[in-house]
Nucleic acid binder design. Structure first.
Lengths: 258, 258
DNA sequence: CGTATCCTTGATGCCTCTCAAGACGGGTGG
DNA sequence: CCACCCGTCTTGAGAGGCATCAAGGATACG
């Protein structure tokens, strides 16, 4: 996604500060997902908690693995900048991309229980993540009522998203799949305060195809058809969504080309 | 699944009893999923907790709705006997079956956070469930360390299962899908102490097809091919798995017919 | 400036869907 | 108890959407 060079200001421990969810205070990790974790029910943020949770901040280059399937659990990861794809494997080596993750989202939380990562995560471009070692998450969660709630919420969101993907993969046609993908990505970018109608894809056509259960070539062809219908316009990985309403209708199966 | 007429003995409150996970003590709800929830890390079961959690026990007839999408959250449900299917919908009315659930499994936990069910659940046959009203789950979880862990575990399992379904729907061929379905169902039946190589399907070919992203007719045809290869034998909804090893190989994509 | 990677477009084939019709079985009412 | 009916299952024929194979062009990067 569009690379933003966030200025990292050092955070002196401050006690519980009220911050509107949409505000954009210059706080370290404000724009990464740890913030999400540290949001209490009322919207307060415990900044000292925030500070104490993040033990490490690391940058991964394009193509680098953040974690592998089956690897012992080290930490959860909150994406500060860049983009990450997660994927699972069949025994015979086929790959299914299960998700793309953008700044502000949290990765690897569900591995807490199994003590092993159940998918692999790979940087799609230069990506900066905050590592949150959750070795003793139970004591942590015990001390911080809001944290536990946020964890459940994030896992719950993932379940809902996966259910939507099952619907897409099981029932939707190629055009509907791509429309769904674009609309969903646009919404998430908007949620994190980025341009929602014009953005740069960080993943290849091949990755998109894999994610959507389509061949790379089919993705290209559908994109071409979308452009011919002036639904969108593209230039390599740059995308402009021209007619959001029609795109949404198509994503829901309420419209199609021809 | 095979209907068992479980004898429900009344449970006088007993304090923490050590029970082996595989044991089959005559405890109410022993064989339903609430047991799962009440297992502490060490394997202890708090029977008084068990008793206090289950507020209601209800039977649903074949086709009856247990909950709808968007409906306000009432409770989680642990299946005692029978079988349940869960499904999600597109805006234009298409349905995707997201799972089949057998006795010993828990339903509707992830709705806790959103306060609304994110899928609908329907009884496939006469089904008895324990209702667990989790209105104040946070205080509950606070008092019972093991409970929170179990909830995370169940949600975590669901995420892993959904990821496997995405792989299946995105990458596997019809034969591999059906083999995966049969092997998975067999494993779960075994886990709950039921015959794993010969069982009765509680869902129609149409439901199976919907779940696997296939047409009803394709399911029939693949079943026929499996029988011709003596991989399995069937009689209506009765299934016998003849060659589990070949079936597993096929599920993983390491083998195919012809 | 060369090379590797990614994107695009065309031609062909196949897997699966759709439509159709018949068989089978279970349940119900006369 | 039997006949009927309806839902479910099965099998066939045909069509279509998408995958696959192939090749050329664009772009980025060293």
């Amino acid at each position: 996604m569009i690379t933003t060079t966030a200025v990292v200001t050092s955070t002196k421990p401050v006690k519980r500060v009220k911050v509107a969810e949409t505000a954009c205070a210059p706080i370290a990790c404000k724009d990464c997902g740890i913030y999400q974790l540290c949001l209490t029910v009322g919207g307060d943020v415990d900044l000292s908690l925030l500070d104490s949770l993040v033990k490490n901040r690391r940058t991964y280059k394009r193509g680098e693995l953040i974690y592998r399937i089956g690897e012992p659990y080290r930490a959860a990861f909150a994406i500060r900048s860049g983009a990450v794809k997660t994927s699972v494997l069949t025994d015979d080596g086929r790959v299914q991309v299960t998700g793309f993750h953008i700044p502000g989202e949290v990765l690897g939380l569900n591995a807490i229980i199994n003590d092993r990562y159940n998918c692999e995560a790979r940087a799609l471009e230069t990506t900066c993540v905050c590592e949150v070692p959750f070795d003793h998450y139970e004591e942590l969660a015990h001390g911080i009522p809001g944290l536990q709630h946020q964890m459940l919420k994030i896992m719950s969101q993932e379940i809902v998203h996966n259910q939507e993907m099952m619907l897409l993969l099981g029932k939707k046609k190629a055009e509907e799949r791509l429309a769904t993908f674009l609309v969903n990505l646009s919404r998430r970018l908007e949620r994190h305060g980025r341009p929602a109608l014009e953005f740069k894809l960080s993943m290849s056509r091949s990755d998109i195809g894999n994610y959507l259960g389509l061949a790379e070539e089919t993705v290209c062809r559908v994109i071409t058809r979308f452009e011919e219908s002036s639904l969108i316009s593209t230039e390599r990985r740059l995308v402009r969504l021209g007619q959001m309403d029609r795109l949404q209708a198509m994503a829901a199966g309420r419209s199609s080309l021809e």
